[in-house]
């Protein structure tokens, strides 16, 4: 019996479970956040989006502290960035999951503790991106701004960061893509994201593992591809405003 004899049946089962892969057992409610039991790809995307939003602000802070002349801020940030970059994400996920009961006396939902782990993890990398992006701008930009009487903070806010952040977009997207894929690690502590829905269906159906994992690979790929192509378009649009002189 060749694969082509069973393919229609197997892919039929995939089709039957596709909604579960996409949004789990989601149900709309009339109370914030207006949906419960969100799972599958939708949960992965929510994790990634909230993760990147949180990581952007925390990472921006870490990056600015990293280049600050205040030694306390600078070394705090260096310790944070190096410590996080030197530890595996999976370990951080466990760490925050098991840390929450000790710190707060109650368990945090797996979704929340993974989200915190993602934010803490990704912002260390964002911090480095911010540092590199600011340092890569021609020195004359800061000099011109300071020379006209702007304070350091104003120069950062109106001259340096608007340019630097634009230049960082490709690196941010890179992190975002990484994070989107890394949300699959949340599976381990029971978050019902795409990877976990795949495992659940696999356990139930038993004989269609191949098709299941092909399907979720495609789903991850499509999301990441949309992100990278959007980033390419954005880069092209913004490139005309870049400082070319050193």
């Amino acid at each position: 019996m060749s694969y082509w004899d069973v393919a229609p049946e197997h892919w039929g089962l995939i089709w039957d479970n596709l909604d579960y892969f996409l949004w789990g057992a989601a149900k709309f409610t009339d109370q914030f956040p207006y949906v419960e039991n969100l799972g599958g790809l939708a949960a992965s995307i929510v994790l990634a989006v909230l993760g990147i939003l949180g990581a952007f602000w925390l990472g921006l802070g870490a990056g600015l502290m990293r280049i600050s002349r205040n030694r306390f801020a600078k070394y705090t940030s260096i310790v944070y960035i190096e410590a996080i970059r030197g530890t595996p994400l999976l370990m951080l996920i466990f760490w925050f999951f098991f840390l929450a009961p000790i710190l707060m006396g109650q368990t945090l939902p797996a979704f929340h503790s993974t989200l915190i782990a993602f934010i803490v993890f990704t912002s260390a990398y964002i911090g480095e991106i911010v540092r590199a992006g600011v340092n890569a701008l021609p020195r004359g930009q800061m000099e011109a701004a300071r020379g006209s009487g702007l304070s350091h903070v104003q120069a950062m806010r109106y001259v340096i960061l608007p340019q630097a952040l634009r230049n960082m977009i490709p690196s941010f997207v890179n992190q975002f893509v990484s994070l989107t894929k890394d949300t699959s690690l949340a599976y381990i502590i029971g978050v019902n994201e795409l990877m976990r829905t795949a495992v659940q269906v696999d356990n139930r159906e038993t004989k269609i593992s191949f098709e299941i994992y092909i399907t979720i690979a495609i789903l991850y790929f499509v999301v990441c591809y949309v992100l990278t192509s959007y980033s390419r378009r954005l880069e092209k649009k913004l490139s005309r405003y870049q400082a070319r002189d050193r």
Partner: peptide, 13 residues
């Protein structure tokens, strides 16, 4: 004190 630089240093954005 206004200053003008060799490389102009205009804000490109």
């Amino acid at each position: 004190i206004g200053i003008v630089f060799q490389q102009f240093n205009l804000y490109p954005h």
